[in-house]
Simulated assay, not measured.
Amino acid sequence: MQYKNLGRSGLRVSQLSYGAWVSFGNQLDVKEAKTLLQCCRDHGVNFFDNAEVYANGRAEEIMGQAIRELGWKRSDLVISTKIFWGGQGPNDKGLSRKHIVEGTKASLKRLDMDYVDVIYCHRPDPSTPMEETVRAMNHVIDHGWAFYWGTSEWSAQQITEAWAVAGRLDLVGPVVEQPEYNLLSRHKVELEYLPIYNTYGLGLTTWSPLASGVLTGKYNKGIIPPDSRFALDNYKNLATRSLQDEVLLKVNGLKPIADELDATLAQLAIAWCASNPNVSSVITGATKENQIVENMKALEVLPKLTPDVLEKIEAIVQTKPKHSESYR
């Protein structure tokens, strides 16, 4: 396992990480979680991602209990959570000072931890002034509840605005963004954020490297396996949007390249994400131990992604965003 700095910060995160989205609390409980987390640690993973909204808080409870029972040393781990959707009440969601403070305390209680290493604003909140959000995130850091803060699915303009507020008030700005990034979703990472990587030292912890499993090839026959994510009621709409013929043809087209590299489609897709120098860590998901073992082998594929191979991949997917003159 390689460890990279989270953007320009001094925090070192494993190049591949593990996220609790979908799995913890929906498909897995503490016993299974312990097995998966230990498998991740055995492969050198130190970064584990969560959010207050995952399984309505149950994912944090499961992760916290599993880590406690495993008896891991807290300083060996990088734990993150995300604040935005905390409940049904009018002040239980968004990025107000009230919800950021109350949501952070509630997350820490569920995790049974004194602090998280990174706390994210899970989405932008246009109904809350940016200054209020930036001040609240600094309040969280000042109280030792988190060491760093970041954003998830924010626009480059919103991140720039947050940094402008932080600079004006001599506060800490967001050091990391957590966007979706995979062979089918590239615009933000490869185009929109280009002007801000160097300006603010922004790191990326990207999610959905397999496009919710589409890039594994398991849906290529148009059949949804009963134990897959798209079989869950909450994800059936996503399945309809994702499993279009054009997309499945591209996935099929990648198979010969994966075979040539002695890799699975999943390993190729994960390695491709990790090959982007702006990506600090690729967040992977898994419900079975063997999936983690297979995902981690993506690191062996990484050195094989030569410029020629990357060109072959691009010729198949044809998803590279077009650079306008202003970004050249």
Rank of each mutant, 00 (worst) to 15 (best):
W272H: 09
A266M: 05
N290C: 10
L261A: 12
E289P: 01
V251L: 03
N295W: 00
S275T: 12
Q244A: 12
N290L: 07
A269E: 01
E260T: 11
T284M: 14
Q244F: 10
I270H: 04
Q267M: 10
P256H: 08
G285M: 05
L265W: 03
E294N: 09
N290A: 09
C273V: 13
A258P: 05
K288D: 02
A263T: 03
L248W: 05
S275V: 11
C273Q: 07
L265C: 09
L249A: 15
A274N: 04
A271L: 12
N252K: 14
E246N: 15
N295E: 03
L265E: 06
A266W: 02
D262A: 12
A266C: 13
P277Y: 10
M296A: 08
A269Y: 05
W272A: 02
K255L: 15
L248R: 09
I270S: 01
A286Q: 02
V279C: 13
P256C: 13
I283R: 06
A258E: 01
I292E: 00
G285I: 01
G253D: 10
K250H: 08
P256W: 07
S242N: 15
Q267R: 11
N290R: 12
V279I: 14
L265S: 08
L261D: 10
V247C: 13
K288W: 01
T264H: 07
K250I: 09
V279H: 14
Q291W: 02
K297H: 12
S281L: 09
L254H: 05
A269M: 08
N276I: 10
A269V: 01
P256T: 09
